[in-house]
Design a protein around this nucleic acid. Sequence first.
DNA 1: TATTAAACGAGACGGTACGTCGCGTCTTGGT
DNA 2: ACCAAGACGCGACGTACCGTCTCGTTTAATA
Lengths: 193, 193, 193, 193
Amino acid sequence: MSDDRRTRGTDRTQAIMRTTLELAQEFGYAKLSIEAVAARAGVGKHTVYRRWPSKGALFLDAVLTSGGPGLDYPDTGDLVADLRQQIRAAVDLLGRPPLGPLYQALVGEAQHDPRIAAALNERFIRPQADRTVARLRKAQQQGQLSAEFDLDLAMAILSGPLYFRLLITQEPLTHEYVERLLNALLAGMAPRP
Amino acid sequence: MSDDRRTRGTDRTQAIMRTTLELAQEFGYAKLSIEAVAARAGVGKHTVYRRWPSKGALFLDAVLTSGGPGLDYPDTGDLVADLRQQIRAAVDLLGRPPLGPLYQALVGEAQHDPRIAAALNERFIRPQADRTVARLRKAQQQGQLSAEFDLDLAMAILSGPLYFRLLITQEPLTHEYVERLLNALLAGMAPRP
Amino acid sequence: MSDDRRTRGTDRTQAIMRTTLELAQEFGYAKLSIEAVAARAGVGKHTVYRRWPSKGALFLDAVLTSGGPGLDYPDTGDLVADLRQQIRAAVDLLGRPPLGPLYQALVGEAQHDPRIAAALNERFIRPQADRTVARLRKAQQQGQLSAEFDLDLAMAILSGPLYFRLLITQEPLTHEYVERLLNALLAGMAPRP
Amino acid sequence: MSDDRRTRGTDRTQAIMRTTLELAQEFGYAKLSIEAVAARAGVGKHTVYRRWPSKGALFLDAVLTSGGPGLDYPDTGDLVADLRQQIRAAVDLLGRPPLGPLYQALVGEAQHDPRIAAALNERFIRPQADRTVARLRKAQQQGQLSAEFDLDLAMAILSGPLYFRLLITQEPLTHEYVERLLNALLAGMAPRP
DNA sequence: TATTAAACGAGACGGTACGTCGCGTCTTGGT
DNA sequence: ACCAAGACGCGACGTACCGTCTCGTTTAATA
């Protein structure tokens, strides 16, 4: 009847995921523990385990659920402008705090647990890729993109360097970097005749 | 006295790293523990901790040390041929068993521990990048590469899509993929006039 | 509709107690849990808690209810013969499987929970003692028993050594032991003049 | 070097058993937990489990170790006087606080765990019985005891009624009760001729 | 007959404790 | 003097039950 009742009854799930993000932000994913999540969320450990099979699965859910509005593609007719805007949005969301370090940790966890990797792919990477490919296909049909370009490959080429920076060199992802990247990819590395 | 003695005496370090790789291959990095390494290596835990501050650091050392001959760049004068060969070598070494999963786990660990990330960069990523950039610069001077191309960026563009496949979509890295990638990057995405 | 239905409807109480004994016999009282009883009896936990406040209370009820015909005293006029027969009956019932181990566990539980001890006394020990004392009193009046003998004490003297065997040394209770015991108690330990 | 060092180094065992008795006295054996013992003793749970396989085994050790000087038999030449004194001592030690309730709980636990029962017998009951039987044998040789009396049985007859009071009716064990018991057992229940 | 209250199965829930594992530090005994 | 062996305090794991608490669903007794 009360708000408390409703909140607790219908969705402890939300509270647990919220707490998970809090603790991950405060102490880092590595020091996160289901024990601590349950304690701070005021919830029994079983209630967590009933919903998620592992710390990783909980974290995945928490991060992806918090993802907010998603990253929908604009379509202004100008491919480059649209790509620029979309990649900037992705970089702003996943490349810097508060979500950046969490996303980075999530990808890290995916390296240790194939179930996390699979879930991450299905729930985030692939949908995102599909949207990108769709936009690219349209551009290709309009002649804004080299006709013979493999679009799945294009997706990897656009994303890869950003992930390389995020995960490997771990330098900040700036709009300026996005800009240089787009220009380079469009032009190609071969010398101009 | 014996060979055994000398091995143990002079270089327990080697034995510990070897055991680390063994266990990581058998059970996966996630289930690796210093406890188990010390036990199987027939070594006191102290002896491990005296050499490495953490499981991650030990693993990093073990993986990088095992790296074999390194990935030196050929220089036949033909940039594309050299790139192809070098990337194929890298992919063959780090993109498939036995080393592939370990390298993947190592990059994963780097997401949780900045010290591992830093060490990985210094000891492997940067040197490798430097060699690549050097080769690219030479090619640029010879007009085999677009003059205005940012070479650091080129490095990211060449590596990124491979890491994307290794870490994110986790599909196998084939020579065929390398081929398509090289072609695409050289040509650029912009439509041919 | 079926027998099952009627049984469940009219007396879940019986079903729960029956299941309790089953499980206690299969796994031992120590591993008995209300959770398991409810599950096997096909009954909600609430239905158990509505009837008994604790595992111990349930077990007490189950054991005492299963007690069968009770241990009524014969009265043939011969005290020793009657005692012999009655004690043999008690020993056969409570001193050997299937009920023996359960009764033993019940007494054990009474050491940890005063409510169980009290209930055990009221529902089993005292009535049994009263019957014994009544029989002894009659014998005393008939001169078959030393006149000044404290009858409550007599009860303890008759029962005590049996419980000592059952609970402390945990050796089997045989008719032969009963025989020796009776002879000894009647004769007394003092040397014959 | 310090007292702390020595105490912790040589004998955590003592500290754990001491704490066990404390907690058992404060909250009762039923509410005792290894978790709580370890916490209050300032000791890891593992350190407890390394020494004792179960709460019961720990408790047994703690109770028996605390037993103090043991219950040695006097031998004044007068059997009845000696028995009286020895039984009084036992009753004073095990029949009243602080040790009484603990001993009662220990016997209770022995009903649920055969290993405890066995250990209790070997470490306390049997030695005590042996001493009693030895004293009785001597008395028998001196004609202070009926010649044909089975001495093992005598032990059970002397102890049984006391355990019956302690465990079953759970009434207090007084010197007066001991007195009546001794008199009755010596005289026997048969009517005086 | 229709209504209503109680009992019910099922099982989620906040807790406590279990017994285990591995951490990183510290101690001991043997060579 | 070094080192294997492993004890130690600690924290977290994942599990089992506790006793309480909703949920709809029978079931029975009343209106």
